[in-house]
Nucleic acid binder design. Structure first.
Lengths: 251, 251
DNA sequence: ACATAGGTATTGGTAAAACCATTTGATACC
DNA sequence: GGTATCAAATGGTTTTACCAATACCTATGT
């Protein structure tokens, strides 16, 4: 029966690769789990830690390297290795690579971003604190002041969306929003110079903000949905212009 | 008074400006970007690749280790290192660690999962192919057959949700769904034995399926929302029982 | 007494060589 | 022709050594 090939049995359980790497990750995980380590704390020196785990230093470093690439650890030569401090964040590099590898389209990413941020906006309308509302408002004010400076406008645009995500009160959601947005943001920086008018985007930002402040989840969701749909269109237009006149990017 | 003169005479080959790990990741990224590497392809042997990049093998391996932990590469001793084949997937380990580190609650994860899967259900109702519908239906049938076997029921439960995510036609979204669900799934496996009745869950699954098949996005979204809310309640209940009688897990 | 400069120990970063374990494939034997 | 065995290829791990940056301590001068 050769038609077995139709169903690929990709069950890969005996992946011995990373046996020690796994061990390192598991060990650090245990340390964190038992509250022996908190954000900002320093890990034992590599030479000592490798002894504790009974593995060589290069092997230990392979594991630490993986954790660093996950964004969980951070090393400073001469100082030590630390648990990353600051707001929780996932590195977007893995998603970027995966997208590149499988040819994810930007349309799909925008769609995903819309789902995440629409949800975040709805939750923010229910939970946003006064301080979070103030942060959003400030970013909108800064957008007003940056109408003539695309790059600067984009900075405050991203900051506003970050504030909304944070105001959702859901760190898991906020983390995913950040991860997806980071990829689109980097791309957008290259094309935003071709945008002509930010007034529409600004208006929609204000509409989102007003809805959140008024504690109207549905309106906040609808405004955010509208905003991202239009942002996607603007992005697609800029991309098209970039294709049309590859060299003529100054006007 | 330049006290640095004595020490620095031996510098012949200044290290590339950045970290070597970054360099490796960037290099592989370039290979993928230029389509020199596709899923399933094999990378050059480590000894050769380290020469090409002008770095030592341990340093190269640190970078590869990072890529493996990202889920982009996979190594098989004696065979080689390959670009991961199969459906796109992000390792959920980073999110798990981040959640543990910052104390993300399961409530928040369920909330995030709800946002993602409700969105996916809506899209699936618009785009699901016949084959994808068939897969969902099969999983529901298997759930019927597994009403007396919690672990088996859970397997088909997860498979159903995976099918819905795939039917959204959005690989980015499907990847995030997988990542979040994987964490909740592992936890659920430990507690599901305490569940008493799967009929309600099964009914809601069928309702989701019927809505998708009938091409009714709003109904699909509502059904999925309802389902996940109830699943969260069931999960919370099982967790509570686990706390009440810690040892009495056999009945 | 205090502040600052410099040196030293600590610690992460990189490298090289050697050996082990597994896989693959070729070859020899049945 | 099939099967078993061995060898080469390749990832996995360890040991050792040295480089580089940081932190801390000490000495010196004001």
């Amino acid at each position: 029966m050769t038609n077995i090939t139709a169903r690929k049995l990709k069950i890969v359980q005996p992946v011995r690769s990373g046996q020690t790497t796994e061990q390192v990750v598991a060990r650090v995980y245990e340390l964190i789990k038992h509250q022996d380590l908190k954000p900002g704390d320093r890990l034992p020196p590599e030479r000592e830690l490798s002894k504790q785990l009974g593995i060589s230093r290069p092997s230990l470093r392979a594991g630490l390297s993986a954790l660093i690439s996950m964004g969980v650890l951070q090393s400073r030569q001469g100082a030590g290795t630390f648990i990353v401090d600051g707001p929780p964040a996932l590195d977007s590099e893995p998603l970027r690579l995966l997208a590149q590898l499988h040819g994810f389209s930007f349309e799909h990413m925008f769609e995903t971003r819309a789902i995440l941020e629409v949800g975040a906006a709805g939750l923010a309308a229910e939970r946003a604190t006064g301080e979070q509302l103030a942060t959003m408002s400030e970013q909108i004010a800064d957008m007003f002041a940056s109408l003539k400076d695309p790059q600067q406008f984009l900075v405050h645009d991203v900051a506003f969306h970050r504030a909304v995500a944070a105001a959702s009160g859901n760190p898991t959601l906020a983390t995913l929003v950040e991860m997806v947005s980071a990829i689109l943001y980097e791309r957008r920086r290259e094309t935003i110079e071709r945008a002509h008018d930010f007034n529409e985007a600004l208006d929609l930002h204000r509409r989102v903000y007003r809805a959140i402040r008024a504690r109207q989840p549905e309106e906040a969701r609808e405004a955010m949905r509208e905003h991202i749909v239009r942002a996607q269109r603007a992005f697609a237009l800029e991309e098209k212009q970039a294709t049309d006149n590859t060299e003529n990017g100054d006007d």
